[in-house]
C-alpha cells in the first residue's frame, strides 16, 4: 500500500509543471518556531511553497527599477524607503562597481522588496516559511560534515566578522538540503510579517533585556536571537547595508498533490 502511495506521488510529481525559474520547491513539514508566544502552537505545519534559490541580486533589482521608475532612488516615496535606499548604487540605474552585480541587493526597504516580489508574480516569504527553510542543514560547508548544531556555529561565525565593503556574490557560502543557497552567512533577509514579533505579556519587546530568554524554543540558538532582534529593530521603510531579500510563491492549487 505504501508503495502504491509512493508510486502515485511519483506519478503526480512527474506531471507537475517545471518549477518557476530560479525557485526551489520546499516540501512542507512540521516545524517548531523559535518564538513560542502562546499565540502560536509549539509546533506548526508548513505547507509546500516555492522559494528563490538565492537572494535577489543588484542586477536583478536593477531590472525591476528599470521597469518601475517610481522605485528609482531619486523618485521613491519617502514613506516607502528611507534616504539610504540603494545608496550603494552609483546612480538611479547604475549599480556602480561591476563586482556588485551578482551580490545580493541590500539597502532596500520592506516596501521595495514586497513590490519586487509582486512584480515577479511572487510574494515575500512569511517568517515561518523563511525560518523553516533556513533551518535545513548545510549540504556542504568548507568540506565539513554538518549537523544542525554546526549550522548555528556557522551562522555565529558570520556574525563575528564585519561585512566587507562589497558583499560576496550570491551562491558563495553554502547550499542547504532544500537546495537553497546562502540562507545564512551572506545577508539578513526581509520576511513578509517581520513586524509580527510581540511582547509576551505587554512587557518590553521580547528581544531586549533579560526578557530575551522568555518564550523561545531554544535558549542556545543565539543566531535566532540575533535574527529576531534585528527584525524587532526594523521598520518597513528602513534600509540596511546587510539586509536583502528573496521571494516566495504559493504552490498553485492544481500543483498540490492530493493526499
Amino acid at each position: 500500500m505504501k508503495t502504491l502511495v509512493a508510486l502515485s506521488l511519483l506519478c503526480c510529481s512527474m506531471r507537475l509543471p517545471a518549477q518557476p525559474s530560479g525557485m526551489v520547491r520546499i516540501p512542507g513539514g512540521v516545524f517548531t518556531p523559535f518564538l513560542q508566544t502562546g499565540a502560536r502552537p509549539s509546533k506548526i505545519t508548513v505547507a509546500d511553497f516555492y522559494l528563490d534559490k538565492h537572494a535577489v541580486t543588484n542586477a536583478e533589482f536593477l531590472q525591476f527599477v528599470r521597469a518601475n521608475p517610481s522605485w528609482k532612488r531619486s523618485c521613491v516615496t519617502r514613506i516607502f524607503a528611507d534616504s539610504n535606499y540603494l545608496q550603494h548604487w552609483a546612480g538611479d540605474l547604475d549599480i556602480g562597481d561591476p563586482r556588485a552585480a551578482n551580490s545580493p541587493v541590500t539597502n532596500i526597504s520592506w516596501f521595495a522588496a514586497d513590490a519586487y516580489c509582486r512584480w515577479k508574480g511572487n510574494r515575500l516569504p512569511t517568517m515561518t516559511e523563511w525560518e523553516y527553510a533556513a533551518g535545513a542543514a548545510p549540504v556542504h560547508y568548507k568540506g565539513r560534515a554538518n549537523t544542525r548544531h554546526d549550522l548555528s556555529r556557522l551562522i555565529l561565525e558570520w556574525y563575528d566578522h564585519p561585512a566587507p565593503s562589497i558583499l560576496p556574490p550570491v551562491m558563495s557560502t553554502y547550499r542547504n538540503s532544500f537546495g537553497l543557497y546562502d540562507m545564512h552567512g551572506l545577508v539578513w533577509e526581509w520576511v513578509e510579517d517581520f513586524n509580527s514579533i510581540l511582547p509576551a505579556n505587554g512587557g518590553p519587546g521580547p528581544f531586549v533585556c533579560g526578557a530575551g530568554s522568555i518564550g523561545t524554543a531554544n535558549k542556545e540558538d543565539y543566531a535566532a536571537y540575533m535574527r529576531f532582534a534585528l527584525r524587532q529593530s526594523l521598520r518597513a521603510e528602513y534600509t540596511v547595508r546587510t539586509l536583502g531579500f528573496r521571494c516566495a510563491r504559493d504552490i498553485a492549487p492544481r500543483d498540490i498533490v492530493k493526499k
Binding site: T37, A39, R40, I79, W110, F111, D193, N195, S196, I197, L198, R235, A236, E237
Partner: peptide
C-alpha cells in the same frame, strides 16, 4: 507597517 502596529494571526 506605516502605523507601526505589530500583529500576528493566532
Amino acid at each position: 507597517m506605516l502605523l507601526n502596529v505589530s500583529y500576528q494571526p493566532a
